[in-house]
Every structure is written in structure tokens, then in C-alpha cells.
Design a protein around this nucleic acid. Sequence first.
DNA 1: CCCACATATACTCCAATTGAGTATAAGCGG
DNA 2: CCGCTTATACTCAATTGGAGTATATGTGGG
Lengths: 346, 346
Amino acid sequence: MARAHPSKSAADNGIVIGLSAVIAAVIDGEPHVLSVRPPEGHSARFGRAFGLPFGPFDPTAHRTFEIGVRAFIKAQTDIQTGYVEQLYTFGDRGREAPIAALDGAAAQGARIVSVGYLALAPVAAETTAPRAAWRPWRAYFPWEDWRDGAPDIIAARIIPALQKWAARASTPVRAAARKARIKQCFGLDGATWDEEKVLERYELMYEAGLAAESWRDQRGDRDAYNSAEDAIARSLGEPMVSDHRRILATAIGRLRGKLKYRPVVFELMPDPFTLLDLQHTVEAISGFTLHKQNFRRLVEKSELTEPTGQTTSKSGGRPAALFRYRRDLVSDSAVSGLAIPRPKLK
Amino acid sequence: MARAHPSKSAADNGIVIGLSAVIAAVIDGEPHVLSVRPPEGHSARFGRAFGLPFGPFDPTAHRTFEIGVRAFIKAQTDIQTGYVEQLYTFGDRGREAPIAALDGAAAQGARIVSVGYLALAPVAAETTAPRAAWRPWRAYFPWEDWRDGAPDIIAARIIPALQKWAARASTPVRAAARKARIKQCFGLDGATWDEEKVLERYELMYEAGLAAESWRDQRGDRDAYNSAEDAIARSLGEPMVSDHRRILATAIGRLRGKLKYRPVVFELMPDPFTLLDLQHTVEAISGFTLHKQNFRRLVEKSELTEPTGQTTSKSGGRPAALFRYRRDLVSDSAVSGLAIPRPKLK
DNA sequence: CCCACATATACTCCAATTGAGTATAAGCGG
DNA sequence: CCGCTTATACTCAATTGGAGTATATGTGGG
């Protein structure tokens, strides 16, 4: 049972802790996540899905998780991240399957536990790392962006498929429970769309067999499909390696929530910015549009920003004043974010 | 290197995941946490501090963390918990030290990672487990309860000690940074007391050497003390085993926050309750008092409760109407809690 | 039986916040 | 200088939220 590198491998039935990072940035008004294409020949049958930057936690080398995360982000992506936050630790058996080869096949037989992290990068951050690429959230979650109203895919594909799934439940009580979840998750009849429920929506779709990962993991509802190919062809959003799409969903939900009570948007902004830039960034993250004049009032009242005195005329019409975030305020955590005003419906 | 029980031990430099649970309940208007006294002879030099119910995660037996947590809570405490939520995963080296003997000395040399959980129990829950006892939060965090105004211990002992610690910083810049943290954490001059910052306050005190654990871990500021005995005598609040007080701090902060946007208070209530009971529970958790009439208005507007039609005259004066929580509403997560109104100062 | 007392519940008031506009300012390209 | 575009300023009504007063309904003592 002895191993060549005990610090990087694990005994059979042992545990490996994987650190995964969602690195988010808003590029040209679109929210993106840094994605990594696995090496050639890896998980080939799964269409070479993207994954998150990922690395095994090495207890001998890393005093804390955060140090470990920062280290491998730097190693894998060339990106400088300031803000880093732990999201959640996933330990379910059966969701982590095909990432087996962490570095080789060291982790065969071990239970893989994922500690997910969220990191924010200002737009400026470019990556020159070999297999890393900024990819829009939209690719993975085409139903989360409501800036142009309700995405067509919801009414056209998601809801019908979910309703069929609900109807397939084994008992009427369970069918009703499924329907209630669908209603709450997607804001049907009367319920409001809660932009923070990203994970709940993804998990619902996973269970219903609408996420390609659920087929891969041999989980979720499979009754409605003729074959694996059929299921994958009809799945929604691009799948990711391992449970990374679940971690991404967690990150988006958390970020959308945090926006409201902590000044995190500014971690995504280049240095001088206009108020409309700021608004567009908030809108990109939260997935819906805001009332311009009120957003302005809000930002000014918050005193989180200060005018630089300069203006930019890139915007077309009247030049916009440039602002900067007042980092001096306190050691961050004190102040209370931008309390996004929610517009009435859409 | 082979072990007798590979699933419960770990290779040298391996990883053991500990699951710790903060089980909270409000008893007679006082918030309590279920604490476990370690077996005789264990960590004797540390005064036999209490710990949280705790168990190693067994990858072969537990499909998910939550299953594992529920299993050992049941095994260790006789308590039925409904609501269970993951808090945070702690992996810092050096904070976990003296829990070495998980069950024997199996984990010698392994890195211990703590996944903290929060569980809520309605008052009714009694425990008959051998070494388990309900203990008030106050014992561990005597500075967190502001229901009778600012606790004396803050002005009398905490702030002076922290100020001295700030002054001992190696550079003036660092001293200023420490002062700013103190100000924000304890709501000094102008800053408001943020009841959610329980963890930040504890970590500050740990760093300043005011928590007995920081001495035990050989960490934190130690300059101001003549000896270990001196440090422990002057430390504030009762220490806990391992990093359990940190997990408890995380739990309290999270619970205080969650109260505001999710209907979790009801998980702590017996079945029919009066509105004043409910208010007292919220106050116990959040640590400050509320305006009675407005709290009432809030609860009624929220429609989270419904009157049972009955009354109770236990309260003394006019009998109070009994209410129950409407569990039918939705699959929990939809509704938005009680949005605690914050009274102006005190 | 009535009165003091205690708590529960109802209602009022005012200030602050917020949603949603309209009006005006200041650049650009012709 | 005009029309277009976007930025910024100001207005207004509705809602919310903090704080207080008034009234209801029980208990226990004389």
C-alpha cells in the first residue's frame, strides 16, 4: 500500500481534496469564466468538455487552502487575482467521476472532495496560459441572462422537458413536489425569478436529466431518452468536466447575492470607470437590467466611489465622468455593497 | 505504511476530513450550542475544554457529507435535527492541533481538515447522550449579546487589550491597520456594531492573543504575557477543543445573517408559538432587541405564519394568540425570511 | 365585584427610501 | 448651427420603516 509520493496520492479508499476555482471577469459587458481545456486524449468520450482551473490540495506544501488555490491559479493561468473566497465543499460520491487523472492516475480509487473557490479579476486580466480561455457564462447556463427579457430557451425547451419529468414521478405527491420546485426555480405563475437560485436550477435540471453530466454520472432521470447520444444531444448548456458546472453555478449564485451586501463589483472594474460601466457590470452579473437614474443615485449615496475629475467621451453622447473606487474606506468587509434595486417585472 | 483500518486512518502526510456540527437551540430565551466533553484524560493540560460533536468523514460509509454529519450527530447526541447546512471548510495548518486522538491516535501525522455544519433544533430536543450538554453561547462569546446594551467586557477588557496589541505592531502602518480592524469589528467611534461579524471578532482576538486557543496553537500575539498560565488566565471566553470555537463563530455569524433572508427561525421554534416567543428567539440569535409592535407587523405582513385560533395565558397579561409556521408555502428556500428591522442605536 | 397590573394587539404619525418618470446638459458629426 | 446621443439633474408619488400612543383582555388582590 505504500506509495511513491504519499503527499500527492492517496490510499485506496483515501481522500483527495481538489481545489477548483471559478475565476470571473466581465468582458465587453458579458460575464465570463476562465475555463481550461483538458489535455488531448483526456475524457475523449465526453467531447472534451472544459473544466475549471483545478489542482490537488497538497498538505505538505500549502499551509492554507487559499494559498494552494492562489498557487495553482498562478501556475495554470497567468492571472493575478485579488479577491478570493471559498464557496462550498462538495463531497458527494458519484459526481466527481471522470476527472480521475488529476496528474496521471494517482487518484484511482480515492474519494475526491472538491473545495470550490471564487476569484474575481478586473477586465484587464489577460491569459496566455496554453489551454486556458475566457468563456461566457452563457455557454454553460443559457437560461440565466434575463437582460433582454426571459430567455427563449426556458419556455421553448426547459419548462416542457421539466414538466414531462414531473409527470413521470412515481407518485402524485412526488409529481406535485417536482412541479412546485420547477415553479419556484423558474419563477412560474406568480412566483418571481430569483436570480440567486442558479444552483437550484442546475440541480433540478441535472436530476431531470437535462444536464449532460447527469448522463455521464449515470444519475438523474433517464427514462425519456432513447440512448446516451440522444440524451446528450438534447441536454441544455455545455457540460463541464467533473462537477465543475455545479461549482460554477454555486459561484454565480453567490456572486449575485454578494453583490447586494458587499462592494464586490469593484473587484471586477478597471481603474477609472464610468457609472454606466459599473451599471453594465452589475447587470452582467445579476442578469437583469436596472433603472439608470436610480442606480446613479444609489452609487452616489453609497459614497463608495469618488469622481476623478476627468471625463471620457468614448460613450458617444455627452462625456461621462470617471470615477474610482475608494479602497481607503475600511478593510473592505465593513461597507454594505450596492443593494441592487429590483425593477418591477420585465 | 499499511494501516489496520485504511478507511479511518490516514497515511502520514495524508488527509483526514473531520465533520463538526454546531447544533443550535434557544432554551428559555438563551441561545445554546450542543457541546461535548472530551473523554477523561484527554487533552488534560487544556483544562478539558468542550468541543463540538465531531466525527471523521468515512468515504466508504458516507455517500455525502450531510449523511455523515447526520449519522454521527445521531450516534453522539440523541438529537433529531431537521435543518442542516454546510458552513465552511477549514484547512489551515496549526489550528487543529490538539484533537489528535480522533478515535485513538489514528490521525497522527495527517492533516486535519474541518468541514463545519450548522444544525438547528427546536427547543424540545433533549439529549441524554453521556458527555453532551447544552451550553450557552455566552460561555464562549461573552461579548456577542447586546440585548442589555453593550456588554461590559468590551469596554473593560477587550478594547484595552486590543489597543495595546495594536500599539505593539511592528510598523506604524500596521498599527493603523490593526486599529481600523478593531474599530470595524467592535463598532467603535461612529462605526456600527455588525452582529454578523462574529468570526472576524474572534479571529481578531485570536491574533491578539486574547483567545486561549492562540496560546495552545503557539500562534497569535504573545508579547504581552509573562507565561502561558498568565495568558490563559487573561484570555476571554471559554476555549474549545481544536478549531471548534472558530467553527462556532462562523455558525453564529451565518445564522444571524440567514435570519434576515430565509425563514430559519422557525426551525428553532416549538410548534405553536406566540409572536413574543418568536421575537425572543430572533433576539436571542441576533443578540439585540427589537421593537415589538413593528416586529409584529413584519411577521403578519410576511404571511409566513398563520394563527391557530387558540391562545395561551402563560404570558401573564392578556392571553397571546398562538401561531404556527406555514410549512406548506414552498420547498422552503423560496421565501425571504423576516428581514429583521434594525433599531437605531441603543 | 371591581381595580390595579401586565401583557397583547391595534392604530397613527412622520421621515426616509425607492420606483419611475421628465427635464436639462454637453459632447459629436454633419 | 442642427439633430442625435448619452450624461446628469431634478421631481413626484407610493411604499417602507422606525417609533410612539391607544385600546383590549386576561390575572390576582382586596
